[in-house]
């Protein structure tokens, strides 16, 4: 499914968060959404997922403006997953994944054979079949992320919008998740913090800075030394890795804060002072 936005703006309590973003994501494309903290990634994702009504601009799915669509109709087209959702639930994993069937169920009946089969398939896809009967509370952060992805897959969406799905995941699971996303063959827009991971798996990258889209294109075109300095305020080297993708090596933060060794030297005497035996610290 093609997702397009024209002149999208959204603000909270008078503070603009997303400013005039236009984008076009082609069917089947995996697109990485990059930007520092507070650059508007999460808000832009929520506007595109129909969870926020933009102050200006339009969101279109395959050319149809979704402004007046019901939540249910949107949920039948796109699935959305955010980080750290639902820490206090004690539903079983299978029931949480089953929530992905909500947009297809009517109120009167429980899960049917289709729902159960889709849930089982989604669990298998993310490798959580063995944990289907486990309580949500008993899951690790990484298992929850994968369960949320399974829930999104159970929605059988035409597009996946994911907010930092690799949080809490170890390296292997990060790679597996990114491969799984690209394997769906669906339109995927994924907000990521790890620039190298984004460069490795995404067809295209979008770079946000203070709510504006400052760059869009193939990873090698978006990730340049000058842009990383300007947007992320880091000093980084870019090379091409064995797979032909940009690889980022960080030298350190730019400006403001002093070099790390200076900070350590300044701090050391106080540490020594506080750890004298008389004060009883181990």
């Amino acid at each position: 499914m093609r997702i397009t936005a024209e002149g999208l703006s959204w603000s909270v309590a008078g503070t603009p968060v997303v400013r005039g973003v236009s984008l076009d994501i082609a069917p089947g494309e995996t697109v990485g959404l990059l930007g520092p903290n507070g650059s508007g990634k999460s808000s832009l994702l929520r506007c595109l997922a129909g969870l926020r009504t933009p102050d200006a601009g339009t969101v279109r799915y395959d050319g149809a403006c979704v402004r007046d669509w019901s939540a249910r109709r949107i949920a039948r087209h796109v699935a959305f997953a955010e980080q750290d959702a639902g820490a206090d639930s004690d539903l079983r994993v299978a029931d949480v994944v089953g929530l992905g069937r909500t947009p297809f169920r009517d109120r009167w009946r429980g899960p049917d054979a289709t729902d159960r089969a889709v849930v089982a398939a989604a669990l298998e896809r993310v490798g959580l079949t063995a944990l289907a009967g486990r309580s949500w509370k008993a899951l690790s952060g990484g298992e929850r992320q994968r369960a949320h992805l399974a829930r999104a897959l159970a929605q059988q969406p035409y597009a996946l919008l994911l907010d930092e799905p690799t949080n809490h995941l170890d390296v292997r699971h990060q790679l597996e998740l990114m491969e799984l996303l690209t394997d769906t063959g669906q339109t995927v827009l994924v907000a990521l913090h790890d620039l190298s991971l984004a460069a490795r798996y995404c067809d295209r990258l979008l770079l946000l800075h203070h709510g504006r889209l400052v760059a869009a294109g193939p990873p090698a075109a978006v990730l340049t030394r000058e842009r990383l300095a300007e947007v992320f305020e880091v000093d980084a080297d870019l090379a091409t890795d064995a797979l032909g993708r940009p690889a980022v090596t960080y030298r350190g933060p730019l400006g403001g804060s002093p070099p790390r060794h200076a900070a350590l030297t300044a701090f050391t005497p106080r540490l020594i002072h506080h750890s004298t035996p008389h004060e009883g610290t181990p």
């Binding site: 929520r46 997922a49 949107i74 796109v78 959305f80 955010e82 639902g86 206090d88 947009p103 929605q155």
Partner: peptide, 12 residues
């Protein structure tokens, strides 16, 4: 139980 955004994204 999973918060406003996740619930809304499920069509609720």
């Amino acid at each position: 139980a999973f918060g406003t955004d996740t619930a809304a994204s499920l069509g609720i």
